[in-house]
Design a binder for these strands. Structure first.
Length: 602
RNA sequence: GGGGCGGUAGUUAAGUUGGUUAUAACGCCGGCCUGUCACGCCGGAGGUCGCGGGUUCGAGCCCCGUCCGCCCCGCCA
């Protein structure tokens, strides 16, 4: 073994200060940058803790100086030397800038080929993502990337600390689970021992954690991987990490309390932000009405206003004939960028299918005398004009933007427009990031499919609000659930529910979902059987750990907080997976595949 | 399945109406340099313009197809 390795390092590259001057130290790390002045060679030595300037010179050590001439970027080296005060030459940009290490010994542990991109260009992430992913281990060397993973590591520790303090047991559930169609698409794992049958990779530990409650474990949590074979997005990976939580004798408030403490501590420790508890609660209905979405960004105003009533019989047919007319009021101080051509762009924006596909955007400016200047204004009755100005809380100089359509279209379009205006008009202060969290509660229990069937909005074990139970018979669409999401800055970071523990209510829900006895037994027989033996009332939540880490890190993508992520097409560019497999292994599993699409082998 | 953006030197980008030898910065290689810290100076190497086909006297540029990456819809909590 080399002498320095045997000695071991005395410090990391981020910790030396003026108080260490005179110490003999051993540092290990990578050559971040090298500046060769002939008689002086400076090396910024990097490890995960920081940078330390190391100096080589013939007067310090002739051999080390000669060897340092051969150093190049990303060589992995060890040095022994003396900490000296830099005095006038202090570098204020480095935490270790007050000192440098005069190297008496240099050992090259390993040389490095010229990396495909420069690791030291740390603050610039502008390397193509495919290259970053192909050389992920080098990408992960960058200090700015490493910071995200330190944050992520601390998030695990905070989670464990807070939840353990609250009496939760950390437990594990299987990844190889029973295949249940419906919900997210499963990854399948063939069973060699049972040819022709498959496990599924768990989409979530949902059913197992409920069985923990039946088992009397009372309070459970797990930081666990979940697998979903669905299309990827900026904030969606096929494997991701949840903080999964379940507790017995639960009410929504009893679920919220420890979770609020967890996010508060995470924000305090990782973002330096003191969260005010309890967090605001917002019913789903209120969130939709005020923001047009179930995950409102509460960092700015610009709330939706309903002018349906005041525009009945107003003289403008578009408004009169629509089931719902709502609008946004851009106050005068932000309205300047909204020129005529910009308003035309906003009209195109709301017409796009992904922004709701509204038929148009009606806009108006409020004149100093309180009248409206707009293409449609001449049609408006004075009463309607006054009503609009009042409801919109408009003042002279405000710009009003209206969408008239059905409930879904109006809210989708105005919600998208609201976020668009947030960015267009700079409604957030980028310099001082703010953190606005809220619980969105009382989601609808069911959603209607195109062919009129009911499906669970959350999952089939979600409990209705007690007062809505009778509606299961008469009007399932209006039943609200004891289901909730946790929303942070317009992102859903968690969701959960109180589960059904009463057999009669569960039976009713299955009835609405159209599950017959056979399907029930086939899909959930074991859970229903378990629920015959005194299940406690229970409920829980799952938090998206990756998303929380992404937001706290200020990252743009989930990929920035997952060490080895997949591309949008599900590829790992470093290993090249997924790949075909050996025919022999397929044969062992009794698997053949159909002709592949788009490959004409003939 | 659909819509949009992108792919030019190791990297990031520029490349005019289709026209001479495809540019720049950084990086890399060699040399010089004892106070730099994005060191500096001098010199040099480096190109399958993603891939395939087409139009043309001539294609990085136009057309068709295809692969890859990113963003979005559908899908997915």
């Amino acid at each position: 073994m080399s002498s320095l390795l045997a000695t071991g390092r005395t410090h990391d590259c981020g910790s030396l200060r003026r108080e260490h001057v005179g110490n003999e130290v051993v540092l290990f790390g990578w050559v971040h940058r090298r500046r060769d002045h002939g008689g002086r060679i400076f090396v910024d030595l990097r490890d995960r803790a920081g940078l330390t300037q190391v100096v080589f010179g013939p007067d310090i050590d002739e051999g080390a100086h000669a060897l340092a001439d051969q150093l190049r970027s990303e060589f992995c080296i060890g040095i022994r030397g003396t900490v000296v005060d830099r005095g006038e030459n202090e570098n204020p940009n480095l935490p270790t800038g007050a000192i440098e290490v005069e190297a008496h010994t240099l050992e090259v542990f390993s040389t490095s080929a010229t990396p495909p991109f420069v690791i030291a260009d740390d603050d610039r992430l502008d390397v193509h993502e495919n290259l970053r992913l192909a050389y992920r281990y080098l990408d992960l060397r960058r200090p700015c990337v490493q910071r995200n993973f330190l944050l992520r590591s601390r998030l695990y520790q905070i989670t464990r600390s807070v939840l353990t303090r609250h009496g939760f047991w950390e437990l594990e559930t299987p990844y190889l689970v029973k295949y249940t169609p419906g919900g997210a698409r499963n990854f399948l794992v063939p069973s060699r021992l049972n040819p022709g049958t498959f496990y599924a990779l768990a989409e979530s530990p949902q059913i197992y954690k409920q069985l923990f409650m039946v088992a009397g474990f009372d309070k459970y949590f797990q930081i666990t991987r979940c697998f979903r074979d669905e299309d990827l997005r900026n904030d969606r990976q096929p494997e991701f990490t949840q903080i999964d939580v379940e507790l017995s004798f639960a009410t929504p408030e009893r679920v919220f309390a420890p979770i609020e403490e967890l996010v508060a501590e995470a924000l305090r420790e990782l973002a330096g932000h003191e969260l005010e508890l309890p967090l605001p609660r917002l019913s789903w209905r209120e969130a939709m009405e005020r923001f047009g979405t179930d995950k409102p960004d509460l960092r700015f105003g610009l709330e939706l206003r309903d002018v349906t009533e005041v525009t009945r019989g107003c003289g403008f047919r578009v408004f009169e004939s629509a089931p719902l007319v709502k609008g946004l009021c851009v106050p005068p101080e932000h309205a300047a960028p909204l020129t005529r051509s910009q308003l035309d762009k906003l009209t195109d924006f709301v017409k796009k299918r992904e922004h709701g596909g509204a038929k148009g955007l009606a806009w108006a400016r409020v004149e100093p005398d309180g009248s409206l200047k707009a293409p449609f204004a001449k049609n408006l009755s004075p009463e309607a004009t006054a009503g609009i100005v009042r409801v919109m809380e408009a003042e002279p100089g405000s710009v009003l933007l209206f969408v008239a359509d059905d409930f879904d279209t109006v809210h989708t379009a105005l919600s998208a427009l609201r976020l668009h205006l947030r960015d267009l008009l700079g409604l957030l202060d980028e310099a001082s990031p703010s953190w606005r969290l809220a619980w969105v509660t009382e989601f609808p229990l069911f959603e209607r499919t195109d062919d009129g069937r009911y499906v669970s909005a959350h999952h089939p074990f979600t409990s209705p609000l007690p007062e809505d139970v009778p509606l299961l018979d008469t009007d399932p669409a209006s039943v609200h659930a004891q289901a909730y999401d946790l929303v942070m800055n317009g992102n859903e970071i968690g969701g959960g529910s109180i589960r059904i523990h009463r057999a009669d209510v569960q039976a009713k829900v299955f009835e609405v979902l159209g599950l017959d006895e056979e399907e029930k037994q086939q899909k959930f027989g074991f859970l229903l059987e378990a629920f015959r033996y005194g299940p406690p009332p229970h409920g829980g939540i799952a938090l998206g750990l990756d998303r929380i880490a992404m937001l706290l890190a200020g990252a743009e993508s989930l990929r920035d907080v997952i060490a080895f992520p997949k591309t949008q097409r599900g590829h790992d560019l470093m290993t090249g997976c997924p790949t075909p497999v050996d025919e022999a292994q397929l044969a062992e599993l009794y698997i053949t595949h159909r002709p592949l699409p788009g490959r004409d082998d003939t």
